[in-house]
């Protein structure tokens, strides 16, 4: 195997996952995310985009491959810490019962984030960028629309300042105006710190063009094409 590149933040080498019935779900996928890089992942439904994000989040047991963050291999005990640094935001946002505030506070109840707590000022300024008032924090999660839930899930991940965000169609439930607001929020988040990277699955090639330094296309469990930037 090749060693990870010097500036590579997240490096995946030949990730392989086979379903119980023998179908290849990930067929030796290699991928590297550099600091301050945004990569878009596109491809037809069922091509393995979500499974790749899940693999990068270490959610599924793989049949082979190597994953490194900042050059370090991840030990079993180190997985929760790794996941606090490489956060995968599911396409169908999942919120717990309670208010938006309860949802944003949830990660701080985990040991990985116990040293910090909910920063309402920071959230308020992010909400402003999305055209929402602070009162949004008191809304009940079950009353939110699909788009609003998606925003909460995104803010919940962003506030944790991970090194890498893995986003699965983060604007799929949003109207166009809110989509643009979310896109600029994501760009702003990337600019705040030069040691961040983002991998974003999208069906919208125009969005991929607007956000990404590099576009990766997947088909049939493999990466088939890389456009823009370094390979």
């Amino acid at each position: 195997m090749t060693t990870s590149e010097p500036h590579s933040l997240l490096h995946a080498e030949r990730l392989r996952r086979v379903a119980e019935d023998g179908i290849l779900l990930l067929d030796g996928v290699s991928l590297s995310l550099s600091a301050s890089e945004t990569v878009a992942l596109i491809g037809p439904p069922g091509s393995g985009k979500t499974l790749l994000l899940r693999a990068l989040a270490m959610l599924d047991a793989l049949n082979g491959g190597d994953l490194r963050l900042g050059g370090d291999v991840i030990t079993p005990e180190g997985v929760p810490h790794y996941r606090s640094q490489v956060i995968y935001v599911q396409q169908r946002s999942t919120l717990i019962e309670g208010t938006v505030r309860d949802n944003l506070a949830l990660p701080f109840s985990f040991n990985s984030h116990a040293a910090r707590s909910l920063d309402e000022d920071r959230i308020a300024s992010r909400l402003k960028g999305l055209g929402r008032e602070l009162a949004f924090l008191d809304r009940t999660s079950t009353d939110l629309s699909g788009g609003e839930s998606q925003i909460v899930a995104l803010l919940r991940a962003m506030q944790l300042n991970p090194a890498v965000l893995l986003l699965d169609e983060p604007t799929s439930s949003l109207d166009q105006q809110t989509s643009f607001q979310v896109e600029s929020l994501l760009c702003q988040w990337m600019q705040e710190d030069g040691n961040r990277a983002m991998l974003i699955v999208t069906h919208d090639e125009a969005q991929a063009g607007r956000l990404a330094d590099r576009i990766i296309r997947m088909d049939r469990a493999q990466i088939v094409d890389i456009a823009g930037g370094q390979p």
Binding site: A57, L59, P80, H81, R83, S84, I87, Y88, V89, Q90, R92, T94, I96, L106, P107, S109, F110, N111, S112, H113, A153, R156, A157, L160
Partner: peptide, 16 residues
């Protein structure tokens, strides 16, 4: 399941 995985994704241990 989605909620369990959401917690894991945010850095929860398996117990959390």
């Amino acid at each position: 399941r989605a909620e369990v995985e959401m917690r894991l994704c945010l850095g929860a241990t398996r117990w959390e």
